[in-house]
């Protein structure tokens, strides 16, 4: 189990990165923190996300996951806005 005070590290891309003005966010982690909890925390910390109704998928270790997935402090996390490759 991770120690109290552990952080999670989020990578940001494209529109979400520009919206929040950074490509990296560090947040406090807690036991049984889910992707849905993280999503709520982000909306609370960054009201602009709600203002512009920002949509994003969250990935853990380079896999897109749903909101029930639990987060570990060692996970590689990223916010992925709608993609537009090709």
């Amino acid at each position: 189990m991770a120690e109290t005070g552990s952080k999670i590290d989020l990578r940001l891309y494209a529109s979400v990165k520009d919206l929040l003005g950074t490509d990296r966010i560090y947040l406090d982690w807690y036991d049984n923190m889910s992707v849905g909890d993280l999503r709520e925390k982000l909306y609370e910390l960054f009201p602009i996300l709600s203002v512009v109704n920002a949509q994003f998928t969250i990935s853990i270790n380079r896999r897109a996951v749903d909101d029930t997935k639990l987060i570990r402090t060692t996970d590689e996390l990223a916010l992925l806005p709608p993609i537009s490759g090709g």
Partner: peptide, 13 residues
């Protein structure tokens, strides 16, 4: 401007 597109669907729970 960033172009909108497709939201990647969750792969796993």
């Amino acid at each position: 401007r960033w172009l909108g597109g497709t939201l990647i669907p969750p792969k796993e729970k």
